[in-house]
């Protein structure tokens, strides 16, 4: 069971990294998700996958066929956090589409490198956005 999980993790990470290297921001964001889920599976498989018994430790000792429940708790935390960050990344993606009308990563970096906008003249009433 662990070997199947390991191969799946390897595949997911490979696909995730490949997508991260793409020019389109959509693929980059999806790449982060694929990579993150690959790693989540790796965290999950750290506690063994074979155990079928519930991991209750009684006075008679721990059941032999139980998986370690701690990595399951860890991966639950990681999934929740990862989902929140994914939602933020999607919001950034949507806004990038609206503001740049282009989601090529090179172009987005070029926008960040543009010279800093100056403050409008004292009597001006230009928008406050982008000011230092």
């Amino acid at each position: 069971m662990e070997i199947v999980a390991s191969i799946t993790v390897g595949l997911l990470v490979a696909i995730g990294v490949w997508m991260l290297l793409d020019r389109s921001l959509v693929r980059v964001v999806l790449g982060i998700v694929v990579l993150g889920n690959g790693i989540n599976l790796a965290v999950f498989s750290v506690g063994r996958l074979a155990g079928e018994a519930a991991a209750f430790v009684t006075a008679a000792g721990a059941p032999a066929a139980a998986a370690n429940p701690l990595p399951q708790a860890l991966v639950l935390t990681a999934i929740v956090i990862g989902f929140a960050l994914f939602v933020f990344a999607l919001a950034v993606l949507k806004r990038s589409w609206e503001l740049h009308a282009n989601i090529e990563t090179d172009r987005i970096t070029a926008v960040a490198e543009e010279p800093a906008p100056d403050l409008p003249p004292p009597d001006g009433s230009a928008a406050w956005r982008d000011r230092p």
Binding site: I39, A89, L99, T109, A112, E114
Partner: peptide, 28 residues
């Protein structure tokens, strides 16, 4: 603003990758 959004994209992607690496390291 446009420029701020573009800067956030760079910051977001690289920091998320670093965080994912740290998660894997903790599990390992």
């Amino acid at each position: 603003g446009r420029r701020r959004l573009a800067g956030t994209v760079d910051y977001l992607v690289l920091n998320l990758v670093a965080t994912i690496m740290f998660l894997l390291a903790a599990a390992m």
